[in-house]
C-alpha cells in the first residue's frame, strides 16, 4: 500500500490523521501520534489515532504537561523506546491512565529536528510481547525515521510563513542525479556516469526526496520538474 504523499496533498481536514492510520496499517502498529512545535509561528500541531475518549481524558487531565514521551523525547536525537522512560517522574501516572483506555506501554517516540528550531515527534505504540515489539521496531525503524521526517516537514510547511522559508535547496550533485533519474537511468548507471559509488547516488536521492517532501523517487522527480529545478525529458 502506498502512503499518502503529503507533499502533494492540499491539506484538507483529517489528512494527517489518515496518514497516521496508514502508518499503523503498513507497519502493523496499534497507534500513532504526531506532535510538532513551530517556533516561527509559535504554534503547536497534534494529530493522533487514539480513541476519542482517551484524547478527551488526556486533555482534561492536562497529561500533555506530564507526558514523558513528549518531554523527554523532545530533547533526544535518537528514537526513544518507552522502556527507557519507565523511571521518569509521571511515567506511571500517564501510563496507568492510558492502560484504562486500552493503551499499552510498548512504544517508541521518534524525534525530528528541523532547520528552524522546529521540533516534531512521531510516537507509535504496539501490543503483544516486548520481545516481539523490539524485533518489529528493529525491522521498521529506518522507515519510521523517514515517515517521521515526512509528516513533520509537511505539517511545518502547512503554514504560509514556514512554506516560504522551506523552499527546497538542492545541491548541484543532487540535481544532477535527479536529472539522470528523470532520464531513466538507474542508480548503477548514474554511478558509472558520474564516477561515484551507487551508494553515493542513493544517499543523494534519499536526501533529495526528503528535501522535496517526497516519499518516493518518482514523486521527487515530478516535484523537481514542477519546481523547474530539473528539465522534463
Amino acid at each position: 500500500m502506498e502512503l499518502i504523499d503529503l507533499g502533494a496533498t492540499v491539506h484538507s481536514e483529517g489528512v494527517f490523521e489518515d496518514f497516521l492510520h496508514q502508518i499503523c496499517e503498513r507497519f502493523e502498529l496499534e497507534h500513532a501520534a504526531y506532535a510538532g512545535v513551530n517556533p516561527v509561528s509559535q504554534t503547536i500541531h497534534g494529530f493522533v489515532t487514539y480513541p476519542d475518549a482517551w484524547k478527551r481524558h488526556y486533555t482534561e487531565q492536562g497529561l500533555d504537561r506530564l507526558d514523558p514521551t513528549l518531554h523527554c523525547a523532545a530533547r533526544s536525537i535518537a528514537p526513544v523506546d518507552w522502556s527507557r522512560l519507565a523511571g521518569q517522574p509521571n511515567f506511571d501516572r500517564v501510563f496507568r491512565d492510558a492502560g484504562d483506555f486500552g493503551i499499552g506501554r510498548l512504544g517508541l517516540t521518534i524525534p525530528v529536528r528541523g532547520p528552524f528550531g522546529d521540533i516534531g515527534m512521531l510516537s507509535v505504540s504496539g501490543n503483544g510481547r516486548p520481545e516481539q515489539w523490539h524485533k518489529r521496531v528493529a525491522e521498521v525503524i529506518s522507515d519510521l525515521q523517514s515517515v517521521a521526517v515526512h509528516i513533520h516537514d509537511t505539517v511545518m510547511r502547512s503554514e504560509d510563513l514556514s512554506r516560504l522559508l522551506r523552499h527546497p535547496q538542492l545541491s548541484k550533485r543532487e540535481l544532477e542525479i535527479l536529472q539522470w533519474t528523470a532520464a531513466g537511468k538507474t542508480q548503477h548507471d548514474i554511478g558509472e556516469i558520474l564516477s561515484i559509488s551507487h551508494r553515493t547516488v542513493e544517499v543523494h536521492l534519499k536526501s533529495s526526496r526528503d528535501k522535496l517532501y517526497a516519499l518516493t523517487t518518482s514523486q521527487a522527480v515530478a516535484r523537481a520538474i514542477a519546481l523547474r529545478l530539473i528539465y522534463p525529458i
Binding site: 525515521q145 523517514s146 517521521a148 545541491s171 543523494h204 534519499k206 536526501s207
Partner: peptide, 14 residues
C-alpha cells in the same frame, strides 16, 4: 567543504 552547496539532508543520515 561544500563550497556554498547546501548539505545533504535525510531522515536516515546522521
Amino acid at each position: 567543504i561544500l563550497h556554498g552547496e547546501p548539505p545533504l539532508r535525510s531522515a536516515n543520515l546522521w
